[in-house]
Amino acid sequence: MTDLVSPPDGIATNPPPASPASDKKIKTAKKTGALGIGGWIASIWLITLTAAAVFAPWLPLDDPAKTDFSVPKNNSSPFTAGHLLGTDNNGYDILARIVWGGRVSLVVAAGVLIIGMLVGGTIGLLAGFFRGKSETLLMASVDVFLAFPALILLIAIVAFLGADLLNVVLGISLVSIPAFARISRATTLTYAQREFVLAARAAGASQKRILVREILPNVILPLLAFGLLVVGIAIVAEGSLAFLGLTSTETISWGGMINGGKKPLQQDNIAHTAMIPAVTMFLTVLAVNVLGDRFRAAFDVKDSML
């Protein structure tokens, strides 16, 4: 679940042939629009979450770092007065922390997506286009990365460099770069053989022009589709670090909330402090994956039309 290195299933490294499965998707897509019902629900959830996260400071929420022991006690259950989702064992308002934790997930998702696509995408593009030694080197380093336990590497980076959010984003990005490079290389390889590249070359286009104007536009969308998948994994990875107590305690994060709720859950029979962030995280990752899935299905259509 925290595997960032191997290309996940469902990602075709070659343009997939039109299969009955994708034909079916085209049909259902026509019925309910490109997104489908699930896609719409997923979009609404993610947009709400993003909006809440972005505007958190201006929303009528409790201070996520303010303890409130006035209500019966700490660990008050959901729907108590003043605390819609209750409070945790420190007396923090859970709703406020969910929203503020969403900010962290958002930063991680955006950061990893940008860095991974820029660095990994470029490496893969160059390796797939120019081939030769750089490609061999790339594949060799991917092999090494595969044998290296990704989560342990991530833990080591964060444990040693310091646990602030920037290092977490950098660490997760670093671990995700080989996967981006692989996808980008594989896609580049298939497009570099296509007739329109040959045509551009015959028309006297420079290597740089072919790379930027002919190949890049075709590589960037499949890469983005893969990126959505990485976004889900990155959110889980940040949560894992926070869950293990390795990120800064000042950063409010869903994983950290689950970690905080672990003891009440396992020892005091109080479930909501861990369940609420766990469910939020599940729904968010699910929504990202549903959208990614729709996105990739849409590309199958595009590929088969080419």
């Binding site: 679940m1 889980v236 396992q266 369940m275 766990a278």
Partner: peptide
């Protein structure tokens, strides 16, 4: 598809709640 999307620790929370707290079938830790 749903199971792929669920982070291990989030699923663990759910399982402990269901099978250790509600039903008391398995130890929580």
């Amino acid at each position: 598809f749903g199971l792929i999307s669920i982070p291990g620790y989030a699923f663990a929370v759910f399982l402990v709640w269901l099978f250790a707290l509600r039903f008391n079938w398995f130890p929580a830790i």
